[in-house]
Design a protein around this nucleic acid. Structure first.
Lengths: 170, 170
DNA sequence: GTCTATATCAAGATAGAC
DNA sequence: GTCTATCTTGATATAGAC
């Protein structure tokens, strides 16, 4: 019950802030309780006085990301949304991965947050849920393949993004 | 030089076959040298007499997957390709993840294999490389979001796939 | 609220005997 | 080609003193 981001104590917020720095610097693989504690200036076991476990820490980071999505993607056309989506992921690649590449612990999130973050995509395609899922899949696929270096070295990703957004516009 | 799949010794092939079984049963997280050795009936250190390291083992699994892609996706229309892509991923979800969710160790693969596996997608869209990348991104995004349970519980994924393929057909 | 000490577990990989 | 023994590293988490 105390695991939603808006219910954290001040000290817990400090720990989450340190975790965010560490995540952005080194990725989900480098996010250990010990390393987080180092950044805060305490020992790893002390974290457990403020957060129940590592999953709660990750949920706080993911929640912050969803809040940022809801803000960054608000009121855009499909083309603008695509650009904003890619820009966010490239600016925060490790947070993006933490947010998307695993099953989501929905019971750890503030109720309604996931829907709120998804709403800009639904709005951008005119309210069609199936089309929204298709556009999201395209954007997510482009993003993950780019982040993982899976396109050929010389690939024109701007052109691939444009080709996809053009297809969905009609 | 001895790490490409077609250059493996018979004993190494047995080890890779055991690794494939383990991977398909438990996923990339469960794929440890110890567990693979258990399936073969030997101790983990013995594996190193046949394969240089774990990455070589993974490269052999990934190479096999690409060979299967090149075969399974041959000569399809975009719609058929999408269905075949999704069917392969759902039939081999853990291999699909191993193949796609990390940077690719291209120097460990048989030269030309990656391009051969990608060719059916390029052919299906009429040779336009940008369009092929966009379609691949859509298919990969749909696949990963489905495998990770990221769509809402009631989402009609057949409809989302259809919406995407329809958009790319025109 | 912090600490030390520890439990528990698991990973990849190497040395050297047989 | 296989083994045992071991190195090295690292993880999450708990117990209990202060």
């Amino acid at each position: 019950m105390a695991s939603s981001a808006h219910e954290l104590t001040p000290r817990a917020r400090e720990i989450v802030a340190a975790a965010r720095e560490l995540l952005e610097a080194e990725g989900p693989e480098g996010l250990s309780m010990r390393r987080v504690a180092d950044r805060v200036g305490i020992r790893a076991p002390s974290i457990y006085k403020h957060l129940p476990d590592k999953e709660a820490l990750e949920a706080a980071l993911i929640s912050a990301g969803f809040e940022e999505w809801a803000e960054a993607f608000k009121g855009e056309t499909p083309e603008e949304l695509g650009r904003a989506y890619r820009a966010y992921a490239l600016a925060h690649p490790h947070l993006y991965r933490l947010m998307t590449e695993r099953p989501l612990a929905r019971e750890r999130l503030t109720p309604g947050l996931e829907e709120r973050a998804a709403q800009p995509i639904v709005d951008a395609v005119g309210g069609d849920a199936d089309a929204a899922r298709a556009v999201w899949a395209f954007a997510h696929g482009m993003t993950m393949l780019e982040l993982n270096g899976r396109f050929p070295p010389g690939a024109d990703l701007d052109a691939a993004w444009a080709a996809g957004m053009r297809a969905f516009r009609r």
